[in-house]
Design a protein around this nucleic acid. Structure first.
Length: 212
DNA sequence: TCCCAGGCAGGGC
DNA sequence: GCCCTGCATGGG
């Protein structure tokens, strides 16, 4: 496992970009639905879909579980892959209603590893989405590895690591602090969107000296 | 006109 | 196990 001062990287990003206050969302249910909707799409489009669901008062487990599929499809169309995403957020809501009386308090109240396995067993919730939900909705010390994080690691000289290895790397090299986990993940995304797009603008990047 | 965006699931090998 | 493909809209 590579040695790297992740805390120092975090401090540089925080100083450069400031706090990001992730995850945006008024409720934990909204956080979870947003986590599914944002897969492979921009947050801007997710906001439109969230607003549509909220305007129709469908942003709670019982309402969404009972909503017609084609109605939900139309409301979230902006997020892309809308047919499968509509099915998935409805199915998640039905699961919550059936197994936990629609209560996120009950659902999110397990041992972290057990809850993680349960999340991963649900359709449309893979590794990154499960870990984002664990961190931002359940408040667990779980570090999500997304495409930006993998890209950053490559720039820092960490290659050929699989998802679980990268997660273990972050979780064992960061202070066990929820706010740091939340902000760091958000800051890495901010970094990727700002400096590591199609044309790197390394001269202004706060990590220019850390990259290989 | 291409390529990318805060992935996931299912298939082939 | 790894690699490929479909899923789909919106913006640069």
């Amino acid at each position: 496992m590579p040695k790297m001062d992740l805390a120092k990287i975090y401090e540089k990003l925080l100083k450069h970009f400031g706090k990001q206050y992730w995850w945006p969302g008024e409720t934990r249910f909204e956080v979870i639905i947003g986590a599914i909707l944002t897969q492979q799409t921009t947050w801007r489009n997710v906001e439109l879909a969230i607003k549509n669901l909220k305007d129709k008062e469908l942003l709670d487990s019982h309402s969404l579980a009972a909503a017609p599929l084609n109605h939900v499809e139309a409301l979230i169309r902006h997020t892309g892959f809308y047919r499968q995403k509509a099915r998935r957020i409805i199915n998640f809501s039905k699961y919550l209603v059936t197994k936990y009386d629609g209560s996120l308090d009950k659902f999110l109240d397990g041992l972290t590893e057990q809850l993680r396995r349960e999340l991963l067993s649900l359709e449309g919730i893979g590794l990154e989405t499960a870990d984002s939900i664990l961190l931002y909705a359940a408040g667990r010390l779980t570090f999500p590895i997304d495409a930006y994080t993998k890209r950053l690691c490559e720039r820092l000289g960490i290659k050929e690591l699989k998802y679980e290895e990268l997660r273990e790397f972050f979780e064992s090299n960061l202070p066990r602090n929820l706010e740091i986990y939340k902000e760091f993940h958000a800051l890495i995304d901010k970094l990727g969107k700002t400096y590591c797009k199609t044309k790197p603008q390394c001269s202004n990047c706060p990590l220019v000296d850390d990259c290989i």
